[in-house]
């Protein structure tokens, strides 16, 4: 049996003495879109940070293409093909839109699908504002810069941490509208979402988290609404 593209096995994570993840197991197959849902404080962003090396974890707790990467530093994990759109976008204010995109290719350059031109094709407004400071754009445009920045490394797995947070529904629709092209480029996508409806629409499989545990997993079509609500809120809906 072949290993999944990305998998966590009993992943734990701590902030000092506080344990934020308790043995999380997830797997991502090639080309899949996975949604990780859960309320505030469920451990979704911590899971993203642990996978990308921004939080320390045990070596075998994260495996990518059959390799244990749990103890690798963030740049080396990105080099291997896991890229993240961080929560809150975190653009660099002293860099222009173009520079914010270019720095995405800092650790992993090459002749992949995603180039500046491709990003500009998907979001033409970024081409017009390429020399503006990244943080001078609207919230939605900034989010597209953050996604474009992550794509510039031509990842095999794109982790999107709360990309819809604080954005208008029309902008969220635009952002998720770009996902088919991202999937078309061959990347698997992991979306962290609080919006259950949005997550169910885009995902092939869903993991629900609560207080650092995975409480439910399955295909959206197979998951009863009550089970999701129970796993999400920890009460019977």
């Amino acid at each position: 049996m072949t290993e999944p593209l990305l998998a966590t096995h009993g992943l734990t994570a701590h902030y000092g003495d506080f344990q934020a993840l308790f043995g999380v197991d997830i797997k991502v197959e090639e080309g899949e879109t996975i949604a990780i849902i859960g309320a505030n404080g469920a451990g979704k962003s911590t899971l993203m940070r642990a996978i990308t090396g921004l939080l320390p974890s045990a070596s075998e707790a994260v495996r990518f293409r059959g390799e244990a990467i749990g103890t690798l530093p963030a740049p080396e994990i990105l080099e291997r093909g896991i890229s993240m759109v961080p929560e809150g976008r975190k653009l660099f204010p002293s860099l222009s839109v173009e520079e914010n995109l270019l720095i995405g290719a800092h650790a992993r350059e090459g002749n992949g699908y995603w180039t500046l031109e491709r990003v500009f094709e998907v979001v033409p407004v970024l081409r017009e504002r390429r020399h503006h400071p990244g943080t001078a754009l609207s919230g939605g445009q900034q989010q597209m810069v953050a996604i474009g920045r992550a794509l510039m490394s031509n990842p095999d797995v794109l982790l999107c941490d709360e990309v819809s947070l604080g954005l208008a529904p029309v902008v969220i629709k635009e952002i998720y509208g770009s996902f088919p092209q991202i999937k078309g480029s061959g990347a698997a996508i992991v979306v962290v979402e609080q919006d259950i409806g949005q997550a169910m629409k885009v995902a092939d499989r869903v993991y629900c988290m609560m207080e650092g545990w995975v409480t439910l997993e399955g295909c959206p079509a197979d998951l009863p609404r009550d089970a999701i609500h129970n796993a999400y809120f920890g009460v019977n809906a």
Partner: peptide, 20 residues
């Protein structure tokens, strides 16, 4: 140099885009 300017702006974000 681009990485250095990113570090000056936000060390955590710079790390997340592969800058050491």
């Amino acid at each position: 140099g681009l990485g250095l300017q990113a570090i000056r702006d936000n060390v955590g974000a710079a790390r997340s885009v592969g800058v050491d």
